[in-house]
């Protein structure tokens, strides 16, 4: 439904976005995931019509929106820190978009209440927005965006200011609402857990480009680059040199030699990055990775064990600090990052 084609934008004379293209299908929640300053909020603002881009087009069902001002696009946007109108009551905040459509008074009343019920805010109508808690303000912002029934909803780090527990709860509710309303959505965040929890599709934004586009499971399994694996916190990344390539790949690294399967075409002597996933490994006397333990942290059913070479693994039992151990990593937990 939404199509972005080759969007480019400069910020203070340096390229911020360089050729962003993607589409958002009906009923789909797309998550734009990137570090802060990667331009993901700017991209949202370009889609919303709040900012212009130097190059590229934003289109809705094939129709170019470049000349459509923000107020005619019928998109919803939930801002970071919500941007609620401080001079209006909760009810009037939610009703604002409906008033702008010049609907009849009973219609505004009905749909405002409907939106407020949707976000569990019934009874808050006459409250002043400045006296609400962060979570309540977030719900008002969501209701305000939902009420005019936008054809696309956008979220700009909507849960950034909230504490962990509340964040998880609101995330569940939000997922429910998005499924119920079936409105396509773009969700911007720098938190990969949030992204994986809410997205049908994850887009990784790095250095102004989309470096990975796929379902959460696909992105998790195939991060595609060392940067993505590191950003998503998938495990240890070590550099190595291809020693032997037959059916499997043999790679020599500073941490030891690994044998793995890899779909890419590699040459002997080529440098590659390996992702060593920290779980699914075991202590073994003949293990392919050796090191001295420098830190052991108890984490519920397992221990996070850090070695002197900086690599970390999750083990079911705790070795002693200072002990030299050997770890066996099965080939399934070693990935080659192109």
């Amino acid at each position: 439904m939404l199509q972005l084609l080759d969007i480019a934008k400069d910020y203070e004379n340096r390229p911020l976005l360089r050729g962003i293209s993607f589409t958002v299908a009906a009923n789909e929640t797309v998550c734009l995931l990137g570090a802060s300053g990667s331009g993901k909020s700017t991209l949202l603002r370009i889609i919303a019509g709040l900012e212009t881009c130097e190059q590229g087009t934003v289109a809705w069902q094939g129709q170019d929106l470049s000349s459509a001002p923000a107020h005619l696009r019928n998109f919803g946007l939930v801002f970071q820190d919500y941007a609620l109108f401080p001079h209006l009551s909760v009810f009037k905040n939610v009703a604002f978009g409906l008033q702008m459509q010049n609907l009849s008074r009973p219609e505004i009343e009905r749909r405002t209440r409907e939106a407020m019920t949707q976000v569990n805010l019934s009874g808050f109508e006459q409250r002043h927005v400045t006296e609400l808690s962060g979570g309540e303000q977030q719900r008002v912002a969501l209701a305000r965006a939902l009420a005019p029934r936008p054809r696309l909803l956008m979220f700009d780090e909507p849960l950034g200011a909230l504490d962990r527990a509340l964040r998880d709860r609101l995330l569940d509710e939000l997922r429910g609402i998005l499924h119920a309303t079936r409105v396509p959505a773009i969700y911007v965040t720098h938190d990969q857990e949030e992204a994986f929890a809410i997205a049908d599709r994850v887009l990784l934004l790095h250095e102004g480009k989309i470096v990975r586009d796929g379902s959460p499971a696909e992105v998790w399994n195939e991060p595609g680059s060392a940067w993505a694996a590191r950003f998503l916190g998938l495990g240890n990344i070590v550099e190595g040199v291809v020693r032997l390539k037959v059916e499997t790949l043999k790679v020599e690294t500073r941490a030891g030699g690994f044998v793995l399967r890899c779909g890419h075409a590699h040459q002997t002597g080529e440098k590659v990055n390996l992702l060593l996933r920290p779980s699914g490994v075991r202590l073994a006397a003949d293990g392919n990775l050796r090191g001295v333990v420098t830190d052991v942290v108890f984490q519920q059913a397992r221990f996070k064990v850090t070695l002197e070479n900086g690599l970390y693994f999750y083990l079911p039992e705790a070795p002693k600090i200072g002990e030299a151990i050997a770890i066996s990593i099965p080939p399934s937990e070693v990935h080659c990052l192109a």
């Binding site: 019509g49 107020h71 820190d81 109108f85 459509q101």
Partner: peptide
């Protein structure tokens, strides 16, 4: 906060409104 005006724009208000 400039976002208040922007929020209004996105909710369908033209610049004047």
């Amino acid at each position: 906060d400039p976002r208040l005006e922007q929020a209004a724009r996105i909710l369908g208000a033209d610049a004047r409104r």
